[in-house]
Each structure stands twice: as C-alpha cells, then as structure tokens.
C-alpha cells in the first residue's frame, strides 16, 4: 500500500493551497502539451496512423503509476507538473526515444541560452491526430452486458484488494461499508491492467461501476466533520457483499 493511494483523510498537513492558476510557471505548459500528445499518439487508440515515431502505449495510467511509485516525501515536495516532467522524461529515456546524455546536454544548452528557439518541423497529420483525440476522447465504456450484482440501496463492503503498482480504489475506503446510490449504465474497462487489484483494459474486465455513499463518521470515527457525505465511484471489482453480522462476530 502506497501513501499516494490513501491520501484521503490524512491529518497534520497544514492549510490548503488556494492557487487558482492552471500553470504557475511558463514551462509547465510545455510538459502538459507533451503529455497530451503522447496520449493522443498512443498506438492502442483507433485513430489514423501518422509519421510520428511514437509507438509505445502512454495513458493516464502510466502517468499515475509514475506518481504513485514516487517516494511519498518527494510526492509532497514536487509540484504537480514537476512530477510530470520527471516521469515523462524518464519514460522517453527508458523506452529509447532519447538518451539521458542527450537530455542532459540539451538541458545545459537551454540553461545557458533559455531563449534559443525550438527546432522547426513535423508533419501536420501528427497535430491533426492530437486534435482528433481531444474531440473523440477514449471512453472506457464497453458494449457488454454488465450484470450488476448490486442495486441502488444495497449496503456493500469495500474489498481490501491486493494492490501492488496501481489502483483506482482510494485506500481510506478499504474494509468500509457504504450504500449504492447509483449503478452506472453499461460496463467499464480501465486504461491498464492492475493485476490482482482487479481492473483492466481487456474486454473480459468490463464491469459495472457503482456510486457508493459513505458516512464520514464510519470512515474516520470521532474525527470527521458532521453533516456531510462522501461519494466515490467504484469498479465492481472493489465491491463485495457485506459479511453477515453473525459471521463477523
């Protein structure tokens, strides 16, 4: 279990940062643009082939996995897009698109001369595909009969699944009970297979998603504010039948 999987409810963190800007440094725009391009050019999408040499899969799951695998102190230390810059640079090196030496040398060049222009070039079809991705999106909904095991009003127990690398189950909900408030129509996959954690991109892993309501007094007994409810959207793999009271005793 990683700290990043169970951020909800942590104490002692001090005041929130109320910054309303999307980018606080100009360079952050560049790394955001690169990440979006990578998602759009990722080869599993049903979009027209382009001359881009990008041929490996990159989705939100890859970005999230990188952030979740960080040392928790570093996770809190580095600003949002600093984490992206580290994770994405590392990916391009690890997958052989660039070398660490090339990146160091080029970084040194721009440190010396920050205004040195970027190179020119590239086929317009690459950018056309990126816009097409933004327009089409990448829905996880699949045309599969979802056969939901639970209905609105059912009390459910949230499983403590064996997460290793990545999960979409917030840690503070594990082993807690909640009430289903919505069964979303259809069946849903996830961007990548999370192994024993239980969700994935294969059609066999298309499953219902439930909206589950939790009482904060159950999540943090004696230590939550009153008159509020917490709702979370949870894949069926994370949701189970509550243990009968007799068996639990």
């Amino acid at each position: 279990m990683k700290l990043q999987h169970t951020l909800g409810g942590l104490e002692g963190l001090g005041p929130v940062w109320t910054e309303t800007r999307v980018f606080v440094e100009e360079w952050e725009k560049g790394i955001f643009g690169i990440h979006t391009a990578m998602m759009a050019l990722s080869p599993q999408l049903p979009l027209p082939e382009t001359s881009s040499v990008f041929k490996t899969v990159w989705t939100w799951a890859d970005l999230r996995k990188g952030a979740e695998s960080m040392n928790p102190f570093d996770y809190f230390k580095y600003r949002y897009y600093e984490k992206w810059l580290g994770g994405i640079s590392g990916y391009f090196v690890a997958n052989g698109y660039i070398t660490a030496d090339e990146l160091e040398a080029k970084t040194a060049e721009y440190l010396t001369d920050p205004d040195k222009p970027l190179p020119e070039g590239g086929a317009p079809e690459i950018d056309a595909r990126i816009v097409q991705y933004l327009v089409d999106g990448d829905s996880p909904k699949r045309d599969v009969d979802p056969k939901p095991a639970f209905a609105v009003g059912d009390t459910v127990l949230i499983k403590n699944v064996p997460t290793v690398e990545h999960t979409r189950l917030p840690g503070f909900l594990r082993n807690k009970t909640g009430v289903v408030t919505e069964v979303y129509p259809g069946a849903y996959v996830y961007l990548t297979d999370t192994g024993a954690d239980g969700i994935g991109d294969a059609i066999e892993k298309a499953m219902p998603v439930y909206c589950v309501k939790f009482d904060p007094a159950d999540l943090w007994p004696g230590n939550a504010e009153s008159n509020f409810s917490l709702y979370a959207d949870l894949y069926a793999a994370y949701v189970a039948e509550p243990v009968p009271a007799a068996a639990a005793a």
Partner: peptide
C-alpha cells in the same frame, strides 16, 4: 524550464511531436 524545453526540442528533432504540437 531548461529541462522541459530540452525535452520538447529533442522530441521535435526525433519526430515524436511537431514544432506546433
């Protein structure tokens, strides 16, 4: 800033993205 610009420049040079991406 230098690292982000360096990455962008290399990705343009290598043909991953374009100068307009």
């Amino acid at each position: 800033a230098a690292r982000a610009k360096a990455l962008q420049a290399l990705l343009i040079e290598k043909g991953v993205i374009t100068s307009k991406t």
